[in-house]
C-alpha cells in the first residue's frame, strides 16, 4: 500500500481514537445516570427557593388577621394574592397594603362576560360611586352582615340607660374631657360592636369592662340607637399638640375605611371627625402597643410615630362631623 494511504489511515484512526477517549472525558459526570440528561440538574432546579410562602407562613405573627380571614368568604384568597410574595418579610421590610382597592378588587369582582355566575360581580360604575371598596368592605372578611349594619334599638330606652354614662361621656354624648370619647353622632353599628366587645371581653378597659358586663344585648342596641341620633358638635377649638396639616397627609392612609375627613365610611368602623384629640392619641398608642386589639388597626398603627399620632389626632379633631365625607 502506498505510503500516503497508510499515513492517511493512521491519521483517521488517531482522530477516531482521540474522539473515543474525549467523549467520556468531556461528558459531564451525572449525565446518563437516569437517562439522556444531567441528573444533577434535577436537584439544582429543586434547590431554588420558593418566593410565595403560603398563609401558614403568615399565621405565625398575624394570628388575629388569620381568625378574621379564615372565617370569611375570602378564605380562598390567600394573603399573598393581595399583599404579594412574603419572601423576605418581615426581615427586609413590610409587604404592600394595596392602596387602590378599586383596582385590586375589580380584578376579580368586575362584572365581565366569561366570569362564572357563582363569582360575586359588580357593575363598577354603579356600585359605589367611585368610593374605595374598603369604605364598606373589610377586605379580610368582605361580607357585610346585616347584623352589623342595622341597629334596631329604642333610642328612648337608650336615653334612660345612658344616664349612667353621662358622667364621663356627657349628657348629650359630648365628652367633657380629653381622655374619653364623644359618642354623639357615632355610627350605631360601631357602638354595638364595641360595646359587645367590652361585654364579651374581646376588648378590655378597666372602667368600661365592668360597666359593659352589666349591659344586656338589648341595652347595647338601645344605647347605640340613642347616641347615634344625638347631634355631634364640631371642633370647638380644642387645642392639641399636633399639626393638623401634617395629619391630613397621613390621614390619606386611613381614608379608605374612615372616610376622607373621618366621618364617612363603613358603619362598622368609628367616625373620627371632631373626636377628642387626647382620646385619639391614647387609642392609637394603645393599638400600637397591642393593648387594644384589632386586626386592621394593629398593622396600621404599628408604623406611626408619636408625632404622627399627635398630628392625626389634631387633624381629625378639627374636622366637621356634620359632613358625610
Amino acid at each position: 500500500m502506498p505510503k500516503h494511504i497508510v499515513r492517511l489511515i493512521l491519521i483517521l484512526v488517531a482522530v477516531l481514537a482521540v474522539a473515543a477517549i474525549a467523549k467520556p472525558i468531556l461528558t459531564v459526570d451525572s449525565f446518563y445516570r437516569f437517562g439522556h440528561y444531567r441528573a444533577n440538574s434535577v436537584p439544582e432546579i429543586a434547590a431554588q427557593e420558593p418566593v410565595y410562602q403560603t398563609p401558614r407562613y403568615c399565621y405565625g405573627c398575624h394570628t388575629e388577621r388569620r381568625a378574621q380571614w379564615s372565617a370569611g368568604s375570602h378564605k380562598t384568597v390567600t394573603c399573598e394574592v393581595c399583599h404579594g410574595p412574603a419572601t423576605g418579610h418581615p426581615q427586609s421590610g413590610k409587604l404592600p397594603i394595596p392602596t387602590d382597592a378599586v383596582k385590586l378588587c375589580t380584578l376579580c369582582h368586575e362584572a365581565m362576560p366569561g366570569r362564572p355566575k357563582s363569582q360575586p360581580q359588580i357593575q363598577v360604575a354603579e356600585h359605589s360611586g367611585g368610593q374605595q371598596c374598603t369604605v364598606c368592605h373589610n377586605p379580610h372578611s368582605p361580607k357585610i352582615s346585616s347584623a352589623a349594619t342595622k341597629v334596631s334599638g329604642d333610642a328612648a330606652a337608650g336615653k334612660q340607660r345612658a344616664a349612667a354614662c353621662a358622667s364621663c361621656h356627657g349628657a348629650a354624648g359630648i365628652s367633657p374631657n380629653e381622655s374619653w370619647p364623644s359618642l354623639a353622632g357615632q355610627s350605631a353599628p360601631y357602638l354595638v360592636r364595641i360595646l359587645s366587645a367590652y361585654k364579651s371581653g374581646d376588648q378590655t378597659d378597666p372602667i368600661m369592662t365592668p360597666l359593659a358586663k352589666e349591659l344586656s344585648a338589648t341595652d347595647i342596641q338601645n344605647l347605640a340607637a340613642f347616641y347615634a341620633r344625638l347631634s355631634c358638635k364640631s371642633a370647638d377649638g380644642s387645642k392639641s399638640g399636633g399639626d393638623a396639616a401634617a395629619g391630613k397627609a397621613l390621614a390619606k392612609n386611613c381614608a379608605a375605611c374612615h372616610g376622607e375627613t373621618g366621618s364617612g365610611g363603613n358603619p362598622a368602623w368609628p367616625k373620627l371627625a371632631a373626636q377628642k384629640p387626647g382620646y385619639l392619641v391614647n387609642v392609637l398608642k394603645a393599638f400600637r402597643a397591642g393593648l387594644r386589639k384589632d386586626p386592621m388597626m394593629a398593622g396600621v398603627a404599628r408604623g406611626l410615630s408619636d408625632t404622627d399620632i399627635a398630628n392625626l389626632a389634631a387633624f381629625y379633631a378639627a374636622q366637621n362631623c356634620q359632613s358625610t365625607k
Binding site: 482522530v15 477516531l16 482521540v18 474522539a19 473515543a20 474525549a22 467523549k23 467520556p24
Partner: peptide, 9 residues
C-alpha cells in the same frame, strides 16, 4: 461514541 467522535474530531 464512535460515530460522534469521528465526526466531531
Amino acid at each position: 461514541t464512535k460515530l460522534g467522535g469521528a465526526a466531531t474530531c
